[in-house]
């Protein structure tokens, strides 16, 4: 492994850029993600930065049940994220639809039908520590030696 790759691995492990998208959730998971930003959980001490722009992001946190309005837009948003990228499903809704997945509802879970999901954080809502652990454990696996894997 080249020295450049080693430097890249080191830098990427300390600088994880995250964006989040709400595809029709009840706002519970969004608030848990915001709780990660607050001093108690303090996501930035691990080098995780939250953006509202998908072009700046590496990791996409998807929350919500996939309402019909999002079906074409989520794929567009996913394509805007530069490689290397992963998506994490946060909460029960993008995994199974949870309480909204009933007869005669218009939701279309799971989100993995629309974009590739690398990790799932179950819970309604999940604890901020669970979200944090998912990001921290997934990021090195995905971003480590990215250029080597591409060859």
């Amino acid at each position: 492994m080249s020295l450049l790759q080693q430097i890249k691995n080191k830098v990427r492990s300390k600088s994880i850029h995250v964006t989040f998208v709400d595809v029709g959730s009840c706002n519970g998971c969004d608030i848990e993600v915001l709780a990660c930003l607050a001093p108690r959980y303090d996501i930035e001490q691990y080098g995780i930065y939250v953006h509202n722009n998908p072009r700046e992001a590496d990791i996409l946190l998807v929350m919500g049940v996939m309402t019909p309005q999002w079906e074409d837009k989520l794929r567009i948003l996913w394509n805007k994220i530069p490689d290397p990228k992963v998506a994490i499903a946060v909460g029960n809704c993008p995994i199974s639809g949870c309480v909204f997945n009933r007869r005669e509802s218009y939701v279309d879970p799971p989100v993995s039908k629309h974009i590739p999901i690398a990790a799932e954080v179950p819970g309604c809502p999940p604890r901020p520590t669970e979200i944090l652990n998912a990001i921290l454990s997934l990021a090195p696996v995905v971003f480590r030696d990215y250029e080597e894997k591409m060859k």
Binding site: N92, I95, S96, C98, V99, E120, P122, G123, C124
Partner: peptide, 8 residues
């Protein structure tokens, strides 16, 4: 219990 469904 199924974790992807259970809301605890």
């Amino acid at each position: 219990i199924y974790p992807g469904h259970c809301i605890r």
